[in-house]
């Protein structure tokens, strides 16, 4: 029991440190998409819903499984789709911008 806890705690702390490092200094235009992307990642809680579905054995367990499944699925599917929609605005102008520059240079 204590070895499992220690392993999980080590993973927890190291993941916290990675989380701090990976997000430092991002442009402010990306703040909202980044928040949305992080929001989609915590949709991994759907894995938790799957685990409790496999151990549910009472009416309360079934209701909670249904609730967790519905809420987590809305989080994970909606989160990724809406983040992608936001980021499409960033990627579209990208190919046109360099060509404009070269055209100006050519003329």
């Amino acid at each position: 029991m204590i070895e499992t806890l220690f392993g999980n705690l080590a993973i927890f702390v190291l993941s916290l440190l990675v989380g701090v490092e990976v997000i430092s200094k991002i442009p402010s235009t990306l703040h909202t998409p980044m928040m949305s992307a992080a929001n989609a990642i915590h949709g991994v809680v759907i894995a938790g819903a799957i685990v409790i579905a496999s151990v549910a054995n009472s009416p309360a367990g079934y209701v909670l499984t249904f609730t967790a499944g519905a809420l987590a699925a809305a989080n994970v599917f909606g989160g990724y789709v809406v983040t992608d929609r936001m980021l499409r605005m960033f990627t579209r102008p990208q190919p046109t911008a360099p060509t404009d520059v070269t055209q100006k240079d050519a003329s």
Binding site: I11, L16, G19, V20, I23, M34, M35, A38, H42, V44
Partner: peptide
């Protein structure tokens, strides 16, 4: 572990953000 890693990642990244 998937929940612990992803949760901690978002917890820290979200705080910095």
């Amino acid at each position: 572990q998937a929940l612990i890693i992803a949760g901690a990642l978002v917890g820290a990244a979200g705080t910095i953000l």
